[in-house]
């Protein structure tokens, strides 16, 4: 493979990895706090893409407004899912909330078919994002630079919230000891809602960029990226934000490079992620950055 082709693949890998990483953060944050796998997370990703689409084609909003509006509304959707599907089950066995999560996921997918229609819709992209640029021998589209940069900015913003603000402090505290955190005056349900909102915003951002990268949207578009991002979160070490980003990047890299180096395997592209999941669960169930489960008295 030529060097320039490799660089092109690398850009594709980082783009795909960024998109996985952004979704994976939502899985990992909710898991860190509630020990719940929010299977409806991939659906928020899908909603984010649809909201932008409708904002532009139906309401003729400018791109920037549509994107920000979509992220805001998707955030609210994530909070709403928690409120109706998980909050009533907080003190129920964990498996109940998990089943509820799977149910909500199906519900949103099917509601989307009813409301948005099941036919895939093409996405009209701004020309400047997809005009091929030649840098030496390397041919890339600006989107392949925009996606990683936006992702970087969002991740840095998130880390700032988690490590430098009061709600972030409460999030980190809840992830270890809910009862003690309540005794410190933290309203746990508000912080949980805040977490769902943050994770959903990132998933929506990912969904929007996904629709720009692969310009077609349909109600099931969140299913496979959602599952893969979940794998990325497990790979990176579920509960760790940095791990989710790294897991997403590595998964993107493995997928793109495997197909690039072994084109005959391209039909198995989606299988790589799941093989990876099995390998991690066998060899290092806590993932790359996962914390050891320890209880100090």
């Amino acid at each position: 493979m030529s060097g320039s082709l490799f660089v092109q693949h690398l850009f594709n890998a980082v783009t795909l990895g960024s998109l996985y990483g952004l979704i994976a953060i939502g899985y990992t944050m909710v898991y860190g706090i509630l020990r719940l796998i929010n299977f409806a997370h991939g659906e928020v990703f899908m909603l984010g893409a649809y909201f932008v689409f409708f904002g532009i084609s139906l309401f003729h909003l400018p791109w920037g407004v549509a994107v920000i509006g979509s992220i805001a509304v998707s955030s609210l959707c994530g909070i709403f899912v928690d409120r109706i599907a998980y909050k009533p089950l907080r003190s129920a066995p964990r498996i109940s909330a998990l089943i509820s999560a799977i149910g909500v996921s199906f519900l949103i997918q099917n509601l989307a078919i009813v409301i948005f229609g099941g036919i895939p819709r093409p996405v009209a992209r701004p020309d400047w994002l997809v005009q091929v640029m030649k840098v030496g021998e390397v041919r890339i589209i600006p989107l392949a630079i925009v996606v990683p940069l936006v992702t970087l900015a969002l991740v840095l913003g998130l880390l700032w919230i988690v490590y430098r603000t009061k709600p972030g402090l409460a999030m980190r505290a809840i992830s270890k000891d809910i009862e003690t955190t309540r005794l410190m005056g933290v309203s746990v349900n508000k912080i949980i809602a805040f977490t769902f909102g943050l994770g959903s915003a990132l998933a929506a951002a990912s969904g929007i960029m996904w629709a720009l990268r692969y310009p077609q949207i349909q109600p099931f578009m969140g299913l496979v990226p959602g599952l893969k991002a979940f794998i990325a979160a497990v790979f990176g070490g579920i509960g760790s934000i940095q791990g989710a980003v790294i897991g997403g990047m590595l998964l993107g890299l493995i997928e793109i490079m495997a197909v690039a180096f072994f084109p005959q395997l391209s039909g198995y592209r989606d299988a790589f992620a799941f093989v990876l999941l099995i390998i991690i669960l066998l060899l290092k169930p806590t993932g790359l950055m996962g914390e050891k489960l320890e209880d100090k008295i």
């Binding site: 009061k166 402090l169 409460a170 980190r172 505290a173 270890k176 000891d177 009862e179 003690t180 955190t181 005794l183 410190m184 005056g185 933290v186 100090k296 008295i297």
Partner: peptide, 22 residues
């Protein structure tokens, strides 16, 4: 609370800041 229940992954300073959350 009983057993002290310090948040082990937060710094001393952060534990105190958490105490002032309200």
């Amino acid at each position: 609370p009983e057993g002290r229940r310090i948040l082990p992954h937060l710094t001393v300073e952060e534990n105190l800041q958490l105490g002032a959350f309200s």
